[in-house]
């Protein structure tokens, strides 16, 4: 039986974000991210002056792009894309040249000092492959994050993108980012 094509993506309803940073903490614990580095983070944007003031929170991480520039520039092919769209680093082939970090428009990668290789969000592929949710998605108390397969018409991400307006960040870089922010 032919396997159905998959395309994992995250849909983020960032208006629900309360900047509690539970996602960042969960990620750090799940993936043993060293102190000083993060695989996901929350951008804050302030607007206006008191008393007319607003602040927006916007969680971000690796966008698992359709055309990842990090994978394109990698001289050894250590950065690669799975068939389901997850962009990963093969740590055995990474020589630590950091070209991918320079080439990422979202600055989503960090240099792992201990191993001398570059690390990033894996979309918790080790959990997803077992049928679990990524740690950040599972822990988010205000349900900002929706994870799923865009190719599956019955999935929640598919439904959200079909019925809600959304944006992606910096589409002009041509990377085809796969973090969808609901408007």
């Amino acid at each position: 039986m032919a396997m159905k094509k998959k395309r994992y993506a995250l849909v983020l309803d960032s208006r629900k974000c309360i900047n509690c940073k539970a996602c960042a903490v969960a990620c750090k614990a799940e993936n043993q991210v060293p102190v000083g580095n993060t695989r996901n983070w929350i951008n804050e944007a302030r607007q206006g002056e008191y008393p007319k003031l607003r602040i927006d929170f916007e969680p971000e991480q690796c966008h698992h792009c359709e055309h990842p520039s990090c994978a394109r520039v990698c001289p050894t092919g250590a950065t690669w894309m799975r068939k389901d769209g997850v962009v990963l680093v093969n740590y055995d082939d990474c020589i630590g040249c950091r070209y991918c970090m320079v080439a990422c428009p979202y600055d989503a990668r960090y240099f792992h000092e201990e191993s001398g290789t570059v690390h990033k969000c894996t979309l918790c592929s080790h959990r997803v492959d077992k049928g679990d949710l990524p740690a950040c998605v599972e822990t988010c108390p205000s349900k900002v994050r929706v994870f799923g397969d865009l190719e599956d018409p019955t999935s929640r991400v598919h439904e959200l993108l079909a019925t809600r307006r959304y944006r992606v960040k910096e589409p002009q870089t041509g990377n085809g980012p796969q973090l969808y922010y609901l408007l």
Binding site: I95, G96, R98, F111, H112, G116, T117, V118
Partner: peptide
């Protein structure tokens, strides 16, 4: 300058 120079 590589993170793992011996992997060059």
């Amino acid at each position: 300058d590589l993170g793992n120079w011996y992997r060059f």
